[in-house]
Computed example of a mutant assay.
Amino acid sequence: MSGLNLTVRVHPVVLFQVVDAYERRNADSHRVIGTLLGSVDKGVVEVTNCFCVPHKEHDDQVEAELSYALDLYDLNRKVNPNENVVGWWATGNEVTNHSSVIHEYYARECNNPVHLTVDTSLQGGRMGLRAYVCIQLGVPGGKTGCMFTPIPVEVTCYEPETFGLKLLQKTVGVAPPHRPKTVSPMLDLAQISEASNKLQGLLELILKYVEDVIAHKQPPDNAVGRQLLDLINSVPHMSHEQFTQMFNANVRDLLMVITLSQLIKTQLQLNEKLTFLPTN
């Protein structure tokens, strides 16, 4: 498959590891590189993990600890056997002269490696994310070269990652002296309440859009209309009484699980205190 037909999907844990490696870099290092791990399926490169590779860049050469990279990859394979080398990453907002040399090494480790650049300098007020593939150029029997060509890249999340990001967002915009060092997960009922309020706000936004379209205050969008139609068709057909009965049953089950967990927790704490009581 041609490298230009690839699409890169990056998970948030990869971005966190890149930023962490950049913050822990040596004082004389201006750029950090590393290996991307993940899988390739039907033209989609899904990057789920990564690690940093110590290196030094000089004017005419690049020194990288490849043995360290191989050992770390072997250790990761014992824990995550489904993660393979899919490319490499580097901090910065552009491809440098040494990138082709590093890319040649990863071209021997996997087919069509992708190069991911993460702009940790936050130019433009955001962390830029770009993905490239290396395309060979030249004529038969003559000089050859390569060119880094951009390919689509997007950030994707598993459900646990989405939940973790929502917790992290609670500390955004808070001044450092008042910023909490830890954020505890909310109780189940609090999550239901917050999700219900958010759902109500989204429904009000959709209703306002539909009313504006009907009143010719806003031009209609066919893509939005198809998504709304799919959303309506996905809602189960049930009466208000059936929905209320189903919701109440789920709430009762949730309250029963919470009560049992609290009883078990209390019993364990009581058992621990009785164990340490003196036997005299």
Rank of each mutant, 00 (worst) to 15 (best):
L167Q: 13
V210L: 14
G201M: 11
R179L: 03
P177A: 01
L189H: 07
T171H: 03
V183M: 05
G173Q: 14
Q191K: 10
I206F: 06
L203D: 02
P176V: 12
A175W: 00
L202W: 08
A175I: 05
G201Q: 14
P180I: 00
T171Y: 00
R179N: 02
M186L: 15
E204V: 04
P177G: 10
G173K: 13
K166D: 04
Q191F: 01
Q191Y: 04
I206S: 07
V174K: 14
G173I: 15
L202V: 04
Q200E: 14
H178K: 13
T171S: 12
L203H: 04
K208G: 09
K198F: 08
L205Y: 08
N197K: 14
V174E: 05
Y209H: 12
L167N: 06
L167D: 08
Q169D: 08
K170G: 02
L207R: 07
V174I: 15
Q191T: 03
G173V: 13
L165M: 15
E194V: 06
R179H: 01
Q169L: 12
N197A: 15
K198S: 07
H178C: 03
Y209M: 15
E211M: 05
L167S: 07
G201T: 12
K166R: 14
M186W: 03
E204M: 05
Q169Y: 04
T171D: 07
P176T: 03
Q200S: 10
